[in-house]
Design a protein around this nucleic acid. Sequence first.
DNA 1: ATGGTTGCAGCGCAA
Length: 257
Amino acid sequence: MLTIATWNINSVRMRLPAVLVWLKENAPDVVLLQETKAINDQFPREEIEDLHYNIALHGQKSYNGVAILSKFPLEDIQCGLPNFKDASARYIEAVVRGTRIASIYVPNGMAVGSEKYAYKLDFLQHLYQHTQQLLTYDERLILGGDFNVTPTDQDVYDPAAWHEKILCSTPERAAFRTLQHLGLTDALRALHTDARELYTWWDYRGGAWQNNFGMRLDHFLLSPQAADHLPEAFVDKKARDGEKASDHAPVICRFEV
DNA sequence: ATGGTTGCAGCGCAA
């Protein structure tokens, strides 16, 4: 069994105590992190290596930053989305036990129609092109991370209020669906077809967590070779609770490999 | 309520 988690931690330095406790309690084999908000030299390597994780980093100052933690060796590490001219650290991939795994932080997009929104759609298109390339390898492929897209209204606490707003607009959803149509399975939804309130993010503002005003933004997309061996996928809501929590909860998948 | 909260950085910006 291989356990893989993805978690937008919103600053690795602010979240370090919580992350260490969570790693000890859950002992996942692989963890995909987003929004580490640290350059590689600021990343708390030793504390995490002490828990027997190998680390692949793609950091930057202040913003973004992605990482892969793995109890198994990390091979063929690639930083950045190929052919995407962009200095922001939003993509890293590596091969773990024959499975190619990517940790992805899709731009938020700020507001529909804004410059950042165009940049988000551009990122998603380049992610599509790269994924198309990766699928030609015909190996187990796992894309995980904060996609900053709700796949459908089912993934939104108040679809009417968010109609065609950022995270919910038709072009964003079309980009996500196009990715899926390459043959990738949305792991969480596949195992919880009709579940409402299957959220991974709750705004810090307005008591969103307390009122369960959430959205499903963090996803695992699986190639058929990975999706065929997925007995379990869930959101670890406990990690969103308590003091100094990230605004995202981890998504956890287990694979029979 | 064009609000609210958090993190980085050092005050406004990004989310």
